[in-house]
Design a protein around this nucleic acid. Structure first.
Length: 744
DNA sequence: AGCACGCCGACT
DNA sequence: GTCGGCGTGCTC
């Protein structure tokens, strides 16, 4: 129609017999859980290429999608296709990024549209940043001069650079109307300025790095990898305090010199002001941040900066991996072993593994970093897939703490207590010297189990069957699994007896009580995620600890990371065995990692420091690895155990693992099983088992996941599936596993 | 993912 | 008699 109207009416013949304008049809990935792209018509005059970000209609609404690769299959009548609404003025997703999205979608068995959505999740960032209005001083005088006007003119005359309206008003300390008045008289004219950059450009040569000994060698090695530029995965394995960050900063510097962008992945919790400042003091500017509680405005700016290449370095949590960098040339994955890299909703992925894939597709190096590498990465290192770079000693004058096991069978605490005399003595000594002690217990609340002494009733969660944990500070009993909570009852709900409820086992609050009994004078603080006052209070408390305003810190998990406490010279692990016996196939590994991190908090600034580890199993490989400082034997054993058990590590879901020699075979059978699954409550999701474990045995694995509240239900469901599903071929193995409720 | 349609329980 | 629960199905 449009073509006919454009044609000169006298050329009727041409209008009637010219080949009809062919509507171009392109595939578009839409953010829906569908397995293929949808087809849309490209309106005349619109220009799109694969990777273009567009708005398209889906049913009654408009969604953001990405023009994808491939031809339309021709099954749909092009005339009936709906047209693309908007093609955004925004650089298209590069081919590498599209390949990455396809790969992740195929690997995680997720709808590609949902994976693509992770890359374009920055709502209003799709149009260029609006220009900023600026005022340029043209010279000349207004008709009447007032003191306010004189101040403005003086300032504006000083330099020949444009001012913003509000900036000038603020600088001259006058109101906006003064500026407007002068503008109206033609003293200023309006110009449009490019929006200011989100962050300053980091300078790779801002300071001369000071590296020593093994750090230098390590830096040379990974800088070489960056210079080479091709895909190579390195694993920096260095004890806490060995200066790993300084070493990988040199790789970052080299990538910057090569004109490439850099992504530093960190677990969310490690994205602290302290880290950003450390970066700034090396590069003269902060990296752009990317994490879940970024303001929408900032999110847009950073996203835009990343696609246009204005932002050179992003430090971000796992979702930063899907940012569409213009010329990414290096990824760092710090705290590589951290379980926070796993995403377990919608698209299931481990950002660490997908980061390796992204660098392989983009053909640039990647550096994984950890003091306590995951078993998978160790395996990959041993197999030669990763280049292991060791940093065996601490940096500068910081010495590793002197670690000792406290055999709780030989040094029992007094009745009703949990701290052995050895630990109490150590604490006393530290406090007397004006130093600090950290007691670590990975259990929030007062006591993990409450029961009635009269009838034996145990407080259990009505929603998910785990024990309710008493929280004395909040006067609540809580379920740590599903969040259920109620006020602490005074009477037993079973037998009605008053005041006969008894707390079993320790939580941090109970340890605090015990500490206050022994050290009534000491300034004691409990640090746990349910600390009243939120993140802000947490920051303040951490600062107070660093300044020495606290003598004894009692903390859960969250004291394990970040923040250096210069005066912390004693670390006591209250219950090192906690978490070893919960049946989690990763229990030993996690415990080793956690205990290493916690004990690593001590002795960061040269003061002689100690760690006392309370355990009932001093001969356990984890304890031996911790005190000896030699983890080789521990890792060897872990790898062997996993090979023997063929166990996958995963979180909070029941799963059925199907493994086979080829991917296709495993996938086919897994799909068959899913099809045969009884349609009961609980949704089954098909997903591959964790890659690195598949690498351990060279087999391909898939797993069927079942979400549920109670483990027993999920287990029953999976058993039913196995019995009703298709018979596996000889090379296909099926295992059933239910994740124990992890202590995390 | 959203959103509509559609069929069975407790209520202004 | 309705309001509303979420099971099922569809979107180029």
């Amino acid at each position: 129609m449009v073509a006919a109207m454009d044609t000169d009416s006298s050329d009727l013949f041409g209008a009637l017999f010219a080949a009809p304008a062919v509507t171009r049809v392109v595939p578009v990935l839409v953010p829906l859980p569908v397995p293929v792209p949808y087809s849309y018509a490209v309106p005349e005059g619109m220009h799109v290429v694969p990777g273009s970000i567009v708005q398209v209609p889906v049913g009654p609404r408009q969604v953001i999608g990405v023009v994808w690769d491939g031809e339309n299959d021709g099954k749909l009548d092009p005339k009936k296709l709906r047209p693309i609404t908007i093609a955004f003025d925004c650089p298209p997703l590069a081919k590498e990024m599209r390949d990455f999205v396809d790969w992740v979608a195929a690997y995680t068995l997720s709808p590609p549209g949902l994976v693509a959505r992770m890359a374009i999740r920055a709502p209003a960032a799709l149009e260029p940043e609006p220009m900023v209005e600026g005022l340029r001083y043209l010279g000349g005088q207004p008709e009447r001069l007032t003191p306010a006007r004189i101040k403005v003119l003086e300032l504006a005359g000083e330099q020949d650079v444009p001012w913003t309206r509000s900036g000038l008003a603020h600088a001259a300390n006058v109101s906006l109307s003064v500026i407007d008045g002068l503008t109206a008289q033609g003293i200023f004219d309006t110009v449009f300025l490019a929006p200011p950059p989100v962050v300053a450009k980091p300078d790779p040569d801002y300071v001369e790095p000071r590296l020593e000994g093994p750090q230098k060698d390590a830096a040379v090695e990974i800088v070489g990898s960056v210079k080479n530029g091709a895909f190579e995965a390195s694993l920096i394995d260095g004890v806490t305090g060995s200066g790993k960050t300084e070493v990988y900063f040199e790789a970052v510097a080299e990538a910057l010199r090569q004109g490439r962008q850099v992504l530093i992945l960190l677990p969310e919790i490690a994205l602290t002001p302290a880290f950003l400042e450390r970066f700034e003091s090396r590069f003269g500017a902060k990296p752009a941040e990317w994490h879940s509680d970024l303001s929408p405005r900032m999110r847009e700016k950073v996203w835009r900066g990343v696609v246009t290449g204005e932002v050179r370095v992003v430090a971000g949590a796992r979702s930063a991996l899907f940012l569409p960098f213009e010329e990414l040339g290096l990824i760092i994955v710090d705290e590589e072993h951290d379980p926070a890299y796993k995403q377990e909703d919608r698209v299931f992925y481990n950002a660490r593994d997908m980061a390796v894939v992204r660098s392989r597709i983009g053909d640039f190096p990647i550096v994984l970093v950890s003091a306590t590498p995951s078993v998978e990465s160790q395996v990959n290192g041993l197999a030669g897939r990763y280049n292991i770079v060791h940093l065996p000693t601490r940096f500068g004058d910081a010495a590793l703490p002197d670690l000792h096991l406290v055999d709780m069978r030989r040094h029992p605490p007094e009745r009703g207590g949990f701290l052995s005399p050895l630990l109490l003595r150590g604490m006393k000594r530290a406090i007397e010297k004006g130093e600090q002690a950290l007691l670590f217990l990975n259990r929030r609340g007062y006591a993990p189990l409450t029961l009635c002494r009269v009838c034996g009733h145990r407080f259990q969660c009505p929603q998910c069957s785990s024990w309710l944990v008493e929280h004395r500070f909040k006067s609540q009993i809580q379920c740590h699994q599903c969040g259920y909570h109620q006020p602490t009852p005074e009477a037993c709900p079973e037998c009605g007896t008053l005041d006969h409820l008894v707390a079993c086992g320790p939580g941090v609050e109970r340890i605090a009580e015990e500490v206050e009994k022994h050290f009534p004078e000491a300034r004691t603080i409990v640090m746990s995620s349910d600390l009243l006052g939120g993140v802000k209070r947490m920051r303040l408390e951490l600062e107070a600890i660093a300044k020495g305003e606290v003598d004894i810190v009692i903390g859960t998990q969250l004291v394990a990371k970040g923040h250096n406490f210069p005066l912390m010279t004693l670390v006591g692990i209250v219950d090192a065995d906690l978490g070893l016996s919960n049946g989690d196939p990763r229990a030993a590994e996690r415990t080793f990692q956690l205990l290493s991190q916690v004990t690593g908090r001590a002795g960061r600034t040269g003061l002689k420091s100690h760690g006392l580890i309370q355990t009932f199993q001093p001969l356990h490989p984890v304890m031996q690895a911790i005190v000896s400082g030699d983890s080789t034997a521990f890792y060897e054993r872990e790898i062997a155990e996993r090979e023997k058990a063929i166990l996958p590590p995963f979180g909070r879901l029941a799963s059925l693992i199907v493994s086979a020699d080829t991917r296709a075979e495993a996938e086919t059978h897994a799909r068959g099983l899913r099809a045969a699954a009884p349609r009961v409550t609980g949704i089954s999701v098909l997903g591959p088992a964790e890659a690195p474990l598949a690498l351990v045995r060279g087999r391909h694995r898939f797993r069927l996941l079942v979400h549920g509240r109670r483990n027993s239900d999920m287990q029953a469901f999976l058993r039913a599936m196995v019995s009703q599903g298709p018979k596996p071929k000889s090379s296909v193995q099926i295992q059933l596993d239910v994740d124990p409720q992890s202590f995390l």
